[in-house]
């Protein structure tokens, strides 16, 4: 698509959407949000970027193939479930640590890395589909 307006706005819009998606992901445990929604917002951002600059640009920006990202997410989610095995707890037991970084208590948990895994799977899997379909469009 060759629209000057879109090309001008797209970089700003896309970076805002990606930031927002991460924000939604991270606040998901206490406020509305989470991996599924965050992931979908990121996919939307990728699609817009692809429409504005072509799928090739998105692929270059991502560095990794989306399916690889999805695979990494699935692996992260599985490993998050397995961590508890090291402490003798059943699979998928949530574990928490609260290290103090720069004077602030940062709660970190395996459920959080699990949610990040969900986010990556959604971004990767659905992003891969959307990008492939857009790509075919460019060919035609």
């Amino acid at each position: 698509m060759n629209s000057l307006i879109l090309r001008t706005i797209a970089p700003v819009l896309v970076s805002l959407m990606v930031l927002f998606s991460i924000f939604v992901l991270l606040r998901g445990h206490n406020e509305p949000g989470g991996g599924f929604i965050g992931g979908l917002i990121a996919v939307a951002a990728l699609s817009i970027y692809g429409i504005a600059f072509g799928v090739g640009a998105v692929r270059r920006a991502l560095r990794f193939h989306p399916a690889t990202i999805a695979g990494a997410g699935l692996m992260l989610a599985t490993l998050s479930g397995l961590v508890s095995a090291l402490f003798g707890a059943p699979f998928m037991t949530g574990l928490w640590v609260t290290p103090v970084i720069f004077g602030t208590e940062i709660p970190l948990a395996t459920v959080m890395s699990f949610d990040i895994g969900v986010y990556l799977v959604v971004v990767g899997a659905i992003g891969a589909v959307a990008l492939s379909l857009e790509e075919e469009e460019d060919d035609a």
Partner: peptide, 29 residues
């Protein structure tokens, strides 16, 4: 330790279900 009950169910209480579901999404993709 989560205030968003829906999210807690998804990633913690029923986390194994979710794991299966994202695997399905992955396979579909």
């Amino acid at each position: 330790h989560g205030g968003n009950i829906v999210n807690v169910i998804i990633v913690d209480f029923r986390g194994t279900d979710t794991l299966g579901e994202i695997a399905v999404v992955m396979v579909a993709a």
